[in-house]
Each structure stands twice: as structure tokens, then as C-alpha cells.
Design a protein around this nucleic acid. Structure first.
Lengths: 186, 186, 186, 186
DNA sequence: GATGAATGAGCCTTCATTCAT
DNA sequence: GATGAATGAAGGCTCATTCAT
């Protein structure tokens, strides 16, 4: 039953990712459980608190960031500009905005973030830095941009507006991302 | 008594604006009433539904946008670039992000938006357009940018992260606004 | 509407008294609300926490104790033994056991008890003392019994066993009370 | 494997005894399992229902009562008063109160108690009776006291107050027991 | 047999909304 | 008109009980 439990845990994290991305940090946990296809108590067994769940989802996001890093790193040598652009777009494609906001909401009081999360965060930022540096060297990003700024910017512009009524609000975010990347140029 | 009622209505709208801007779209209405210094029933007498309140707040925001238009319009002739930049920054200074999100959240099901709101919206967009056009003519904004895109962009980058702890997330938004404006250039 | 609110508050306290006496400190608050004939939220409006309710119930109990004191005090002069016995039986008749236990359960961590409660408690104990002293003088209670001991004893022997199945457990408590009073004699 | 099972069963009963005595009738069964050092499912395998467990714990208590009877019976001839007092105090020392309350709580609806329990109960009462009779003969207990009354009294005064804070409530129960025994005298 | 995971039911608590004064 | 009280519905969380390994 170890296998089943693992499976369920993953399902819950995935469901959490989807719903948090769609509806923000204060999704009803029962909704997450239902989306995951498990009972509410199973969710609570796996994540004793709401914070635990958010952390797990964030952890997962950071791992996917690292996988993107690995995917585009080989391109850095041959075509740094292309590598940078693809990397940034892929990052934005993860739509980290909702999640980062959720995370910020949850850990309001400056409480210590779990070791694992913090370490992973450092790794993700460090890994991103090689792309940023290459982009600066290639002259497609201003020298004074920091990794933190870059990431916060990505998060900000990928934060989803909840299912919108006004149709002209739901433009593709690609437009905004490209504006953002262009704005980062020297 | 008419005067009192007017007064109360204004107080409530102002309180709503403050709280939504500060804490996001899902403020408790009792909190708004308390912030306004009136009873909850008074709030409901003035705004039968939550939607009504949000709409009123949005309407008020749009009026303030128009006032900004009026303020910087005179500069358009003499120094279009300066006019454009100041206008855009002032717009961003209204931090419309939170409110737009609240609005979007509230009118999820494609419900018809009130006539008044819609009309005001059209006026605000039209008024903005003269700045955008001037900016395009002056060569500081790409030709293919629409007013809608511009406004949605402003809203997106001024949406506040809910009560944040992580210090590196709370950088000044000015940075992002400048990146945005730069990104809009040809 | 002030009157209605008062009324409701009383109803809730009375219901709490009955249910706590019958089922112990961990009655479901919804059950109390239902017994009182009000909605659950009304209960919460009147008593923000479970502790608040328990305190109110206890406070009420102590007031009834004081009324018993007033009732039998006149007899102290003429017939101290009779006064003492009647007083003790009346006290036991309030069945304070369940409530005292509930109170103890609730304020487990040595948390400060509300001023009002504490003061009332002191008054109730002090008022009882005149009976105890008279009884000692009349030679029907041993000299070394303290008011606290006496009250804890009363509470202990009037703690109800929850609705019992075994019929021989539900003897009248009068027997036990009389044994208790006899045991207190020199 | 039979031995293991036996062992587990005993561990669970012992754990139940401890926890019920300490925290009252409504211990969580998982807590009992943990205290016993077994999985929750093992507890349920051994005791299909909560009632079964309570019954087993009660049965065990009754056996210990019988052992106390055996221990002090020899003294009955030589010194009946001493035998009675020691017996009664030892009985109280088992703190049957919590368990009896638990038992009463559990079998609320007049459900039939298991044969074994009932039979054991009869034996325990009968065995006690010789002490009671001797005490009556020796003139240290009133003639009209029944075994049932005596036992219920013991249970009542040994019922623990749930985790108490108020220091003046946690006096030694010895005081109350002595009062009780004195009250039983003619 | 033993174990830990899964589940739903139930109570706690808050909030939007309505009602009576 | 203004006010605060009343209400039910909804989500949070725990626990007894069952199930799959």
C-alpha cells in the first residue's frame, strides 16, 4: 500500500497545483480532495496543514523549474539568446504566479519556511542565474537585473485573473511575456 | 437625511477601495462596513449585492482615471513622451490591479455588466487612447499595442501580492512598471 | 431587539446547563443551540468561545448557590443543624458536579479564569463558610473540614453517571449525600 | 502466533485501562492503540467494537477486585474491622470510577451486557458481600447498606476529574474515601 | 495476523445575507 | 434610514471504522 499512498500524494499535489493556479491560495481543501479523487481525510493524512500542501506544491514547481534549466542549458553555448528566450518562456509557461502568491499568502508572518523548500529555492535561483548571465553577456538583458527581480517579474505577470467575464481581459499572456522580455533588454 | 445617506455611500465605497486594494478581492463585507464606520445593514441598504459594491468601487476608479487624463492632457502637445510616461505612471499609481481582479472574480459567469460601468469603461479607454496614439506618433510605443492590452498590462503588474512575508517579493513595483513601459517601445 | 438578545442569551445558558449536566463538558455546541431553539451562529455571537459559554453557565450556578445561601441563612440562628442540613442538600440538589468537571476540563492549562468568575467563586465560598462554621459550632461537622473540601466533595458525589444502562447504578443520589454528610460529622 | 496475539490483547487492555483511568471514557481508540504499541487495525481485530474493549477492561478490573478479596479474606476472622477498612481502601485504590463511567457511557441504551461480564459482576459482588457482612456484624457499617450501594459509592468518589487545572480541586481522594467510610457507620 | 492508509460523518467556526426594532 | 441580531450554508478538521497489502 506504500505504492497507493505515493500515488495519492502525487494526485493531491497535482490537483492542488491546478486549483491553486486557477482559484488562488484559498481553495477549499475539500475541492482539492475531490479534484484529486480522494477523501478529505486522505488529504489531511498526507498534509497535516494547508501550509504543508502549499509547500509541497511549491516544491514540485521548483523541481519542474530545474528540469527546464536542464532542458535548455545545452543550448547556452551555441546560441545564448535563443537559450535565454526559450528558457524564460518555458518558465513563464509553468505559470508560477498563482502559486507564488499562494505561498506568500500562506507564510505571512515571516515564519520559517521548511528547510527543503528554502534549499530548493536557492538551487532554482542559482540555476537560473547561468541563463541570466549568459543573456547579459549576449547583450539581451540589462546588467542591473537580479535573478530575484527576474523571477518576481515572471511570477507577477503570470498571475492569472480568475475566470474572467470581460473578454478583453483574457488575452494570451504571451503578449505580456514578450513585452516583459523586451523591457529587460538594455 | 439624503445628505447622510450620500455621505454613508461614499464612506463605504472608499472603505471598499482601501480594503480591496490592501487585502484582495475577498474582503469580508462586514470588514468593509466596519472600516466605513457604519452597520452592516447600512452597507446592504446601499449595495444590495456584493457585485453592486464592487461595481461602485470600479466606477469610482474609472472616474479617477478620467481625472488623470484631464490632468496630463495639456502636456500632450508640448511634450508627448513626457505626457505619456507621466500618464502611465499615474495610472499605475492607482494600483488598479486588485480592483480589476476583484471585478473579474465577481462577474465570473459572464453576467451582464451594468450599463453605467460599461459606458464609463468605454469613456476611460477612449480617453486613454489619445495618450497611446500620441506615444505611438512620438515613437515611444509600438504601433500594434491596443488600449485594452495596455490597460490589462497595467492591471496585471499592479496586482498586489496578498500580505507578503518573503522580503524579496516586495520590491518596489516601480521597477516592473518601468520595465513594462520600456517593453512597449518599438 | 435588545430584549430578544437577552432572552436568547438566557435560553442558551439554560440549555447549556441542562446538556452539560446530562452529557458532560464536551457537548456539541450545535446540540446546545438546538436545545435552546436558536441557530448555531446565535450561540457563537453570544459566546465567542466554548470557554465563554462554560463560564457563563458556571457563573449562573454560583448565583443560584448564593440564592440558596440567602434562603437558609435566616434559619442559622434558630436551628443551626437544620439550617446546615437543608443548605447542604439544596446545594447538592443543584447537581454542581457535572458543571464543575466541565469547568475544570475547559480551563486545563491553568489559564487565568475571568475576573468575574473568580470573584463570584470567592463570594460563594465565603457565603458557604457561615453555614460550615455554624455546623462546626453545633457539633455536626468536624473542625478540620475546609470550605473547599466540602464543595469539592459535593461536586464529586453529584457528578452524574451518563444515562446508565445497569439499573442498579442509578440509585437516588440522596443516599450518597446523606452518607457524605454523616461522614463529615465528628 | 497465538502467543503474540495473546500478548497484544493484554497490551491493549492494559493501555485502555491506563488511558481511561487518566483521561476518561472517551479516549480515542487510536490513542489506545498507540499507547499499546500496536496498529489500530490490530486493536480492531481483537475488539470488534468499542464496547468489546470497554467490556474487556471492565472484566479485567473485576478480576483484580477478586484478587483483592482473596488477599484480605484471611484477615476477616481475626480482625474484621481492619479487614473491612483495608479491603475498601484497596478497592478504591483501583480507581474504578473512570471505568464504571466509561462502561455506563458505552452501554447507554440498555443493551444486553455480555454473559461473561454479568457473571463476573455477580461473583465480584458476592465476594464483596462477605466483607460487608462482617463489617456490619462488627458494627462498623450500618445494616441497611447493600453491596450495590457500596460499590456505586466507591465508583462515584473515585471518578477522576478530567485533567484538572484548579489546584484546590485536586485534593487527595483519600480524604473523601475516609469520609465515605465514616459515613457508612451506624 | 499485523499494519497503515482511506473514508465519511460530525462538530467547530466564520461569513454573507435577511430580519426585527 | 440605521442598527445589530439571527440564520443557514460552507469549509476546516478529527475520529471511528473499514479495506487492501
Amino acid at each position: 500500500m506504500r505504492a497507493d499512498a505515493r500515488e495519492n500524494r502525487s494526485l493531491i499535489v497535482a490537483a492542488g497545483q491546478r486549483l491553486i493556479a486557477a482559484h488562488g491560495a484559498d481553495v477549499s481543501l475539500s475541492a482539492v480532495a475531490e479534484e484529486a479523487g480522494v477523501g478529505i481525510a486522505t488529504l489531511y493524512r498526507n498534509f497535516r496543514t494547508r501550509e504543508d500542501l502549499i509547500s509541497a506544491v511549491l516544491f514540485d514547481l521548483q523541481e519542474r523549474m530545474l528540469r527546464i534549466v536542464d532542458e535548455y542549458a545545452p543550448l547556452l553555448e551555441s546560441d545564448p539568446e535563443e537559450a535565454w528566450t526559450n528558457f524564460a518562456r518555458a518558465l513563464a509557461g509553468l505559470r508560477p504566479g498563482a502559486l507564488v502568491a499562494a505561498f506568500a499568502t500562506t507564510f505571512v508572518n515571516g515564519e520559517q519556511v521548511s528547510e527543503g523548500i528554502a534549499a530548493e529555492r536557492v538551487r532554482a535561483l542559482a540555476a537560473s542565474e547561468q541563463f541570466l548571465d549568459a543573456a547579459k553577456t549576449a547583450g539581451v538583458v540589462r546588467a542591473d537585473v537580479t535573478v530575484q527581480q527576474f523571477h518576481v517579474g515572471i511570477a507577477t505577470i503570470t498571475r492569472p485573473l480568475p475566470d474572467v467575464a470581460a473578454p478583453d481581459l483574457t488575452q494570451g499572456d504571451e503578449w505580456l511575456i514578450d513585452v516583459y522580455l523586451r523591457g529587460l533588454r538594455p
